[in-house]
Design a protein around this nucleic acid. Structure first.
Length: 156
DNA sequence: GCCAACGTTGGC
DNA sequence: GCCAACGTTGGC
C-alpha cells in the first residue's frame, strides 16, 4: 500500500465533486503527461491512500483524503473526439493514456495550505512544494502521509 | 497579470 | 539527436 497526491483545479474537478459522485467514486481521467501516466498505469493500486490537492485559486491546499479503488485501465476519453482530452493517436489497441478510480474518504477538518506545509519540518519537503512541480500525480512517502494526518488533527 | 519551470514539438 | 520555440501549469 502506497500513498499519492493528486492535483486538481477545483473549478475543473473538486473534492466536493468526488464526494457527490455515484458511490463517491470517480475516474481520474484526462491526465496527459507520460510520467503521471506511468504512475496511473503501473503503480497506483486498490487501497492506496490519496491526498486530494486543490491547485489554483487563492489558497492552494490539501483538502481531503481519497483511496484507490481500481488500478490503471485505459482512459477512454482520449478516444472520444468530443472530449477536451481527446488524443487522435489513442486507439483501442494502443490507448496510450490510463486512469484509475478513486473514492472519497474524508474532508480534512482544516485544509493544509502551502504555507501550512512550508512551515512543517516534514511536509515542506513534499514534491508538491518543489518550485515548478507540475506533475499532477505524485508519490507521497509514508512519513509525509502520517505527518499530513497529524497536522490535520486526525491522529494524536 | 506575471513569470518560472517544465514538457512537447518540429526544424535541422 | 540536438535544441530553440512554444504552450501549459500553477504559485504568487
Amino acid at each position: 500500500m502506497r500513498y499519492w497526491l493528486m492535483k486538481s483545479e477545483p473549478t475543473c474537478f473538486s473534492l466536493d465533486d468526488l464526494e457527490s459522485s455515484p458511490r463517491q467514486t470517480a475516474a481520474w481521467d484526462g491526465v496527459r503527461n507520460f510520467q503521471a501516466r506511468n504512475l496511473l498505469r503501473d503503480e497506483i493500486k486498490v487501497g492506496d491512500g490519496v491526498l486530494f490537492y486543490h491547485s489554483g485559486g487563492t489558497a492552494p491546499a490539501i483538502v481531503g483524503l481519497a483511496e484507490g479503488v481500481r488500478g490503471g485501465y485505459p482512459d477512454h476519453t482520449a478516444q472520444d473526439a468530443r472530449s477536451d482530452h481527446y488524443d487522435p493517436k489513442a486507439t483501442p489497441a494502443n490507448p496510450i493514456w490510463y486512469m484509475v478510480d478513486v473514492r472519497f474518504r474524508m474532508r480534512l477538518p482544516r485544509p493544509l495550505t502551502r504555507s501550512d506545509l512550508a512551515a512543517h519540518p516534514v511536509l515542506a519537503g513534499m514534491a508538491v512544494m518543489r518550485r515548478g512541480s507540475r506533475l499532477s500525480v505524485q508519490p507521497v512517502t509514508a512519513d509525509e502521509w502520517r505527518a499530513v494526518l497529524a497536522a490535520a488533527g486526525l491522529v494524536g
